[in-house]
Design a protein around this nucleic acid. Structure first.
Lengths: 345, 345
DNA sequence: TTGTAAGCGTTATCAT
DNA sequence: ATGATAACGCTTACAA
């Protein structure tokens, strides 16, 4: 069992001493082994094993100024959508020999700012960020590349990997209209979050393309939370019969959840009393009764792609021209939309 | 706008030069400000702002050997149960001025081992780990404190924060029995994962307490995944009528999901054709039709508590006596269990 | 109250 | 192929 339970940290120098070589040789064994004689490598590695030596990355990184850490700041780690993004980022990071420092900002721009600061102080080599609403003057660190994912602040020079929200929302609205709905409510989210804004835009465009005017009474703005979605949906559902929507489009998974709960609370059946299309797929969308029709984002790919873009930036030192990647969203038709006898206007 | 877009890193020395003080003074302004004259502090802070200086944590930590990083290794970041644990850990970490390095092992003991190595190399001050199945000789780093969460390897000397799985499972079985079920199937998970083992044990004890013998035909072992749960549940559901269970208890959220899908696939209605109790609550359990009766774990608290224990260890240098904390699980009765006409045996 | 100097554990440069 | 030596950016005795 040797000395494997040594309390004190064992360093390069200890290994060097035991192997009867200089510290530089030990270092070379780890970085550029081909420059070291086979026999010496063996001796060094024996010592490494004997002492159970592991290089101190802090020291190594200080010297090389390569932390091999990337930062990920999301708004809510408990939302499975962001969980999937995180998994995508982690997979790409691992593939590239990087590691992940993770923060969840809770949609608070100050917290977010603080986390970005901390990441910079830890000399991360890149940051992937889901910018919180309102995130103002965003990136104080021209030295570290930042990729925005899911949402964007439109900061000049910043890369972004986003969903094609406009087309996703249009597809949802088109589906609803084709099934005979004309009074379509929308839980529109926040307009200072690009996903909310773009999805509302897609909603409006979808209506416009079918010659249906936007009725502001059917547009409910709210926080991107289950509670806010519940409240907003309730308002729509409590409209008098003639002005009440026959269908609702909710722009993210939290508000969709709130909408389902609101329907349940008011005793409205989906889809017979109210049709519903959500944004973001999830297990409960499938297991719900009826299974929910949704616009599915490529969550994992969002994270994975963002990380890819980041590593490409890191590799090719020079500032690449900022790109915006849009991943397509896909309408998944299940059973939460009823076909209405169409009254052609 | 000054020189805020400097490309090259600005260091303590730059600040010192600009403020006409020594590096140590600048350092003291950041660590022990009360030792520095007010006037000097002002001059230094002016320089800090002018240069947009941020301390290099890598260097600082190398010097102090305090990385202020804790590692978290979970098995699946996309599982909302572990997402909640991660959130708990992050919250506690932030409260204590620590930061989180996150890895998701995918239930692979080799990956897990690699991540633990990496964390050690980054000089993390503690590790919170959901040990993967089979994780053999677990912690090679007596120098860094490890807390196991959710599951334990029973390694001597390691702290653990776990759910009271036995009682949770007993409560589920008791509930089923009280509703008249005697043929209760169990999707038992893996026995080399303590959660699986303990929940099966709770199942057996629950039966025993009511004088019902364990029928091995009703015990299905499987991976902790949706697919495996689906397969195992299908086998149970396809048993000939007389030997088929009237109710199923599934030991985690993934296998519960698989079980629901299996029922759906075979056209069996819950609860009229088959009653079901799951382990782990989630949004879909609530939204399902019928809403699912589950044993709810305190996921967030699991993570938060584990981190608390860890920070207590870090603070009080000396090796504390290893503790096992058990958090209670709570039966949440919804509508997935039907009451049967009881045939008293 | 402030400055000097040594050193944390590595790697890079230059010799040999 | 290997070794001496000087950094990397910071903290901390110790001195002044």
């Amino acid at each position: 069992m040797a000395s494997s339970s040594d309390k004190s940290k064992v360093t390069l120098v200890d290994v060097a001493r035991l192997a009867h070589v200089s510290p530089s040789t030990v270092s070379r064994v780890f970085s550029r082994r081909e420059l070291v004689a086979d026999d010496t490598v063996r001796r060094v590695m024996d010592a490494v094993r004997a002492l159970n030596y592991r290089p101190n990355q802090l020291a190594r990184n200080l010297r090389t100024s390569e932390s091999r850490i990337v930062g990920l700041v999301i708004t809510d780690i408990q939302n499975s959508f962001y969980g999937a993004i995180a998994r995508g980022v982690q997979e790409a990071a691992t593939e590239n020999g990087y590691h992940l420092m993770l923060f969840s900002s809770g949609e608070d721009e100050n917290e977010e700012r603080e986390y970005l600061d901390i990441l910079a102080e830890y000399q991360v080599q890149g940051i992937i960020n889901v910018p919180a609403a309102n995130a103002r003057c965003p990136y104080p660190y021209p030295a570290v590349p930042v990729i925005e994912v899911d949402r964007t602040t439109h900061t000049p020079g910043v890369h972004a990997v986003l969903t094609n929200n406009v087309d996703g929302a249009r597809a949802a609205v088109k589906h609803l209209i084709e099934r005979g709905h004309t009074r379509i409510g929308v839980i529109a989210g926040r307009q200072d979050i690009t996903t909310g804004a773009e999805r509302l835009q897609g909603y409006e465009r979808g209506l416009f393309e079918h010659g249906i005017p936007v009725d502001q009474q059917l547009v409910a703005h709210c926080e991107h939370t289950e509670e806010a979605g519940f409240a907003s949906a309730s308002k729509l559902l409590e409209l008098p019969a003639g002005r009440r929507p026959t269908a609702i489009f909710a722009v993210n998974n939290e508000t969709t959840l709130g909408t389902v709960l609101a329907c349940r609370e008011l005793g409205m059946r989906i889809p017979s009393d109210m049709s519903l299309v959500g944004f973001d797929d999830s297990r409960w969308a499938l297991l719900m009764e009826p299974p929910l029709t949704v616009v599915r984002q490529q969550a994992f790919e969002l994270g994975y792609t963002a990380a890819q873009v980041l590593f490409r930036m890191i590799q090719s030192k020079r500032r690449t021209v900022p790109s915006v990647t849009r991943l397509e969203a896909e309408l998944v038709v299940r059973s939460s939309v009823v076909a209405r006898r169409q009254v052609v206007s």
